[in-house]
């Protein structure tokens, strides 16, 4: 694999893409016979997963919100939608 710079390039490119879509056929074939590359990619994936697990973009401290609306001179909507942490279904739309 060390000599196969084309494959190395492909693997690097894959490491910068969406993992959901899976690697191309050539990478798949290589991984089937090269455990070190396979483990390497798995570790990168696991790292990304760990970060996704701990990140919670749906919550914001209540005090920060109040100050924000005050500084904008806007009224914070008082519906369920406006509740802190209620934005998460909206967040889903970024997922591909």
């Amino acid at each position: 694999m060390k000599n196969d710079s084309e494959l190395y390039k492909q693997i690097c490119e894959y490491l910068g893409c969406d993992f959901d879509s899976g690697p191309c056929k050539e990478i798949q074939d290589h991984l089937a016979k090269c455990p070190s590359c396979e483990v390497y990619i798995d570790k990168v994936k696991k790292t990304v997963h760990l970060y996704k697990e701990i990140e919670n973009c749906d919550e914001i401290p209540e005090k920060v919100c109040q100050k924000l609306f005050l500084s904008l001179n806007l009224n914070e909507p008082k519906t369920n939608e406006s509740k802190t942490g209620a934005d998460n279904h909206d967040f889903q739309r970024f997922r591909h």
Binding site: E59, I60, L74, N75, E76, P77, G85, F91
Partner: peptide, 22 residues
């Protein structure tokens, strides 16, 4: 429309806050 502005803030405040935090 002030209500529309408020709603946009509500829709994005958490994400912008966490973006800044990171």
């Amino acid at each position: 429309d002030r209500n529309a502005l408020s709603q946009l803030v509500v829709n994005y405040r958490s994400r912008i806050y966490h973006l800044g935090l990171r």
